[in-house]
Amino acid sequence: MTGVKTKATDRFTEVFGTKAGTVYQSDREGCWYIDFAGKLVKFDYRTLLLLKKSIYRVDIEQLLLDSSKSPEIEMVFICACNHCYFLNLLQIIALKELLEGTFAMLELNQILHDRLSRMVI
């Protein structure tokens, strides 16, 4: 089992990681793997953007102020990709942080590509 995992991560590049989770990119498959909340889930271009959208849409402040729900209540996220996360408020904050870092890194990666390998002179 561990052997399989090491082998798998060899093909992955870490995009961004926090204490709560890590996002890897697989160049070969052209997709991303998110290691979060105890599972490793594969996202392609379209579903990663859908996940970003559904997480960014959550109004965290409003949830914090909402006294009718206890913070332990878990929430369901269906991100149109055969997977759903059951997350509590803290996990939502953590996933948002992870995604923000990830998209910042992907943007940086694009800038690097533009400046270094896409130079047209």
Partner: peptide, 14 residues
């Protein structure tokens, strides 16, 4: 690391 975002789409999110 490949720039998958750019390969998939010409447009920026904005």
């Amino acid at each position: 690391m490949k720039d998958i975002m750019r390969i998939k789409c010409l447009l920026s999110a904005d």
